[in-house]
Design a protein around this nucleic acid. Structure first.
Lengths: 341, 341
DNA sequence: CTGTTAGCGCCTTCAC
DNA sequence: GTGAAGGCGCTAACAG
């Protein structure tokens, strides 16, 4: 059907012919094999350079049964968190001579399956995956397991047994955040949290409660609201928090977007930011520093480092220095970054 | 050296053996070749399904001499513009059954060369490239040309003859921006432009001047400042513009970051945004809407669409429906998006 | 030190 | 309709 177009690129065969030696000698010379004479080596290398020879990796991949390529599946590249993460992945992969094959699911389960399928056919050596919001069925990952393609899950992790994961624990950062507010004298601290079912929301709530407990303060459940992360939801949450009997002087928001919406609401109520009300958030975006009223502090989740860690974990799996029934679950600690003292 | 690990994946050979037919029959059956009997076809397909057979793409790539993979080289994934662009690239590639190999140069020329080299070895079918800020030498692209790997340059385009490009013309958007301000009654409009040597700066300046000319207003060179895009540079530029005899009531800024810095400066001078002073900017970031004082309008550059266009151009080059000496240079029009009337 | 040979999985031309 | 054979470029036994 499709014509095989000769690429015109020189092969070791041609080099061998011109030099009147065998292909294996050429191959070995090019690889600096110890058993090849210095003179032949030099001759081969010189001719190869002259002819602009370049090894055909597709042949090598085929022959070796591995591609030195890792597949990356993420929900959405345009989210700052993921673009930062993939930056870390790509950097680490490249410095280990691996290439990166990319796919984004857009949180669509069907597309996610399709991409995994395509990566499997591509014979990637391994995958790094952050699953979509709506993914409920994990058959595609089961197929990878059967094909013996190792996977490291990262940030958005499926509820599966025996998997490798890298994620960031938000509890510690939240404790630091609440600590920070308490030290500044705040006693009534609200929290605009995310949807209840998210692990990330649970970690935030737990951190909040633990921080209070640490300071022997009683926890008032009224002060935590679960919102839907939309601007409208945030306004509602703000309205609620500001209507409470106890006067809320600080609020921990689910992320920077929520913080920005909350700030807008507060400004409309003629509140002075960092005086009447102080915000602390989670750094999903690097631009919060540019806003007129950035949060006084935010919990950094180190997406770049997470990407790096996930890649290193995958590479160590690929190097085969692991027992097959050993599963790595790495938990990074989040950390509070203070913008405004 | 490295052991060849049998992947354990079934091959057409095994299917053939189990069915006591030849590999070529299996191959043909799997491809729905017309000359294969319906019964055999069915038997083959069923067994293949049962065995979880999956075609080894690396073998196909090798054999066909093409990989259905395109290489993407970008300066920096964490820049909103590029992450949006790659989103468009990836979507388009995937819906055409192409896979995407990723590399970021971090604006480092050496790394850029290395990535191109690696993509060439990978035998990508084509490349989409946005060059680094500091790249002065283009030998690596010359090598791609010799290897007959088509390249589409995009957004950041090198100064080379006979290349394919996709880029966005900022002149039109700038004209619209100035039009918008003039219609709102502004007569003294400043511009904080970028470094003089950038094409993008030139286009902005030209658009500004053309818009004034269109309205038969005289152009005052004092009103355009070239800044370095840092916060400090922006402050200086603001100080200068606000010190002019003629009272500047509106400013066009190089991008949203500059706009945000400029807004900060204006606020410090107790100016009221959108009253004493109005800003119009270029949309490099989707978050400007979240800031307390977003620009009244901004010039959209459609990175997603640019990525899509570049990919389509590359795909059409790959399909071979082009003369070799034909070069495509696509210019998209930027467009003003009004946030605040 | 170097050459010969086989084979990776698949497709395709040629023969039957 | 189906089979046999060759070859894509490279590596790695196995022989000298």
């Amino acid at each position: 059907m499709r014509k095989v177009v000769s690429s015109g690129q020189p092969t070791i065969k041609e080099i061998a012919k011109k030099l009147n030696i065998s292909v294996s000698t050429v191959s070995r010379a090019l690889h600096d094999h110890h058993s090849i004479g210095l003179r032949t080596k030099a001759r081969v290398k010189q001719l190869a350079a002259e002819m602009n020879y370049e090894r055909n990796q597709t042949a090598v991949y085929f022959q070796q049964g591995r591609t030195f390529t890792i597949g990356i599946l993420l929900p959405e590249l345009s989210e700052a968190f993921f673009s930062s993460a993939i930056s870390g992945i790509e950097d680490t992969a490249y410095s280990n001579d691996y290439t990166v094959l990319l796919g984004q699911s857009h949180d669509d389960e069907a597309r996610e399956k399709q991409i995994i399928q395509s990566m499997k056919q591509h014979r990637v050596d391994g995958c790094i995956v952050s699953i979509g919001k709506n993914t409920r069925n994990y058959d595609h990952f089961e197929m990878l397991r059967q094909a013996k393609i190792p996977v490291v899950f990262f940030d958005r992790i499926p509820d599966l047994p025996n998997i490798h994961t890298v994620s960031c624990n938000l509890e510690s950062g939240t404790i630091q955040a609440v600590d920070f507010l308490l030290k500044k004298g705040h006693r009534v601290i609200g929290m605009i949290n995310g949807p209840e079912q998210l692990v990330a929301s649970k970690e935030r709530a737990t951190g909040y409660i633990k921080a209070l407990r640490k300071h022997r303060l009683k926890y008032d459940p009224e002060l935590i609201v679960n919102a839907d992360l939309t601007a409208a939801g945030t306004s509602q949450a703000m309205e609620y928090l500001l209507s409470l009997r106890r006067k809320v002087t600080a609020i921990v928001t689910f992320n920077d977007y929520v913080a920005m919406d909350a700030v807008q609401y507060a400004l409309k109520q003629k509140l002075e930011i960092n005086k009447d009300i102080t915000f602390v958030s989670y750094a999903n975006t690097p631009v919060s520093g540019y806003t007129a009223f950035p949060p006084a502090a935010s919990v950094e989740q180190f997406p770049y480092e997470q990407g790096k860690a996930a890649t290193n974990m995958l590479l160590s799996l690929l190097s085969g220095e692991h027992a097959l029934n050993e599963y790595n679950n790495m938990l990074m600690e989040s950390q509070l970054v203070i913008h405004d003292r």
